[in-house]
Amino acid sequence: MAGKSTPMFIDGATIQTLLPYKSLINHLQTSLPFATSSIQSPLRHSHPTSSSSTLLLMPSWPTSSSSTFPYIGVKLVTTHPNNNLINLPGVHATYVLFSSVTGQNLASMDATELTLRRTACVSALASSYLSNEGSKVLLVPSMRECDDEAIRRGRVFVDNEVAKVEAGELVGAFERAVIKEEDGVEGDLVELIKGVKNGRKDGKEITVFVSVGSAVVDLLSAQLAYETITVKP
């Protein structure tokens, strides 16, 4: 990564090619336990840019200099709900990847497709621990919340701790005393991967997985896309 170079742009169609679901699932399964303790990821920044529009920033970076994970990343998202009046999407997103060693801009990529891919793969990875063995179909509803009864009866897991303060179904369940905030969530995805927490115990059990996304997963996904192009086998 030494010397001057022009940052590459990776469009949505290329992201699909670079991040097959199976490859990304495997990458997250092997990388998340390490990344959770070695990558800094603050709460997402939200800034109103007008009375109806918002800018979101989701940065992440390694906690120490490392040649094994030399990346800084940030996802930038704009939301303009009134864009439907001019036949444009209401959300636009870009992911920017930098070298953590030199600070150089390495790549920017379509973060809409990146987010769609990583969201599906996180859900699929969680499902491998929480679903019935005979399950064959994974449905990922869009902006669909679980009802209180499912939360009350199920064993609840989250993708990361931020879900406890950002996921509407959990925040509401805490406020309505459906479950207790201190012990109503059994564990997170990394604990399932490490085996610290047990997944599904039997076929009759109800399991609930709540995901709000994370900048760490965004960075790992961007890493895989970038290295698939640049790292020679």
Rank of each mutant, 00 (worst) to 15 (best):
T49D: 08
P59C: 05
Y21S: 04
N87D: 15
S127M: 02
L18R: 00
S38F: 12
P89D: 05
L55D: 06
H80G: 04
S31A: 15
F98N: 01
W61G: 02
N26Y: 10
L130V: 03
A13Q: 12
Y95L: 03
D110R: 04
I72H: 07
D110I: 07
S46V: 14
P33L: 10
S38I: 07
L32Q: 00
T119C: 04
Q104P: 04
L85Q: 12
S99N: 13
T78K: 06
L19C: 08
P48V: 01
S108T: 12
I72L: 14
L28N: 00
S65G: 02
G103K: 07
S100K: 07
P59V: 05
T63F: 13
L76V: 03
L130K: 04
D11H: 09
Q16V: 08
R117D: 02
S41T: 11
F9C: 08
S38D: 08
N84L: 12
N84Y: 15
S50C: 10
A126V: 01
Y95H: 04
L32E: 07
L57V: 09
S52K: 11
S51M: 15
H45L: 14
V74L: 08
W61A: 11
Q40K: 10
A126Q: 01
L57F: 02
L114C: 03
T78M: 08
N105G: 12
F9M: 12
P59Q: 07
A124K: 00
G90C: 06
T79M: 11
L19W: 08
F98T: 04
L19H: 05
L32N: 07
T119A: 14
A124H: 04
P20N: 11
V122R: 04
T112H: 03
P48I: 01
G103D: 08
L19E: 02
